[in-house]
């Protein structure tokens, strides 16, 4: 029988999972990443499940860059997990392996059950300790605060893209991503979005 081929042999492929709560803007984040990948000349395929996003559900995007044809990421096979909400990041840990880099916003958006006292939100310190102990690296910070600092809470997605690019895990340069922000997000928000990206990039370095 032949080789014990491992998927790591295919170094060209990067698998990124983005999880968010409906309305947090992760679909735009995926779109901007896709456009930046085109600028970088990197093949990209994306798949999203957004069944009832407008009604408070979870939105999950899979982004595969490189030569692979699949646009779906199996459990344990994400190279990067980008979480827009801490409990959703924790919930998506099944997508990770010991080599996964995890980036998460730390500002909670408690599910309704928790908001009305019928569920317990995970302890944020324990959450970070758990993720840090099980994965290669955790970058965790309050991205909502930085989005507000940039001028619009809706720029949360751009803050997180900044932190994502700072990890240098993707074959995309910050300049390519900024170009995608300039051309693919609303013109009147471009400055806020670019500032948000820079703040996220800096936060990723410090976290």
């Amino acid at each position: 029988m032949t080789a014990t081929g491992q998927r790591k042999e295919n170094m060209n492929t990067i698998r990124l999972i983005i999880v968010a709560v409906g309305g947090q803007g992760n679909l735009l984040a995926s779109k901007v990443l896709g456009e930046a990948a085109l600028l970088a000349g990197v093949p990209v395929r994306m798949s999203e499940i957004h069944g009832m996003a407008q009604r408070g559900g979870v939105v999950e995007s899979a982004i595969v860059m490189g030569q692979a044809r699949s646009n779906l990421i199996s459990d344990g096979e994400a190279d990067i997990l980008l979480g827009f909400e801490p409990s959703e990041t924790l919930r998506a840990l099944n997508k990770c392996n010991p080599d996964t880099v995890v980036i998460t916003n730390m500002a909670p958006l408690p599910p309704f059950t928790v908001a009305i006292g019928k569920g317990t939100y995970p302890d944020l310190n324990q959450l970070q300790t758990l993720i840090r102990s099980k994965t290669q690296r955790l970058i965790a910070f309050d991205a909502v605060a930085l989005a507000k600092q940039a001028g619009n809470v809706m720029a949360l997605n751009m803050v997180l893209l900044g932190a994502l690019l700072q990890t240098r895990q993707l074959p995309i340069t910050p300049e390519q991503l900024k170009e995608a922000i300039r051309t693919k997000t609303k013109a009147n928000l471009a400055d806020v979005n670019l500032k948000a990206f820079d703040l996220g990039y800096a936060a990723g370095q410090d976290a």
């Binding site: 709560v21 009604r55 840990l93 599910p111």
Partner: peptide, 21 residues
């Protein structure tokens, strides 16, 4: 012959409140 990639142990992850639509 194939060894699936290493998975992480999720046994000690606390229960995460569901987010139903």
């Amino acid at each position: 012959a194939y060894t699936p990639p290493a998975k992480i142990d999720l046994a000690d992850i606390p229960e995460i409140p569901a987010r139903p639509p």
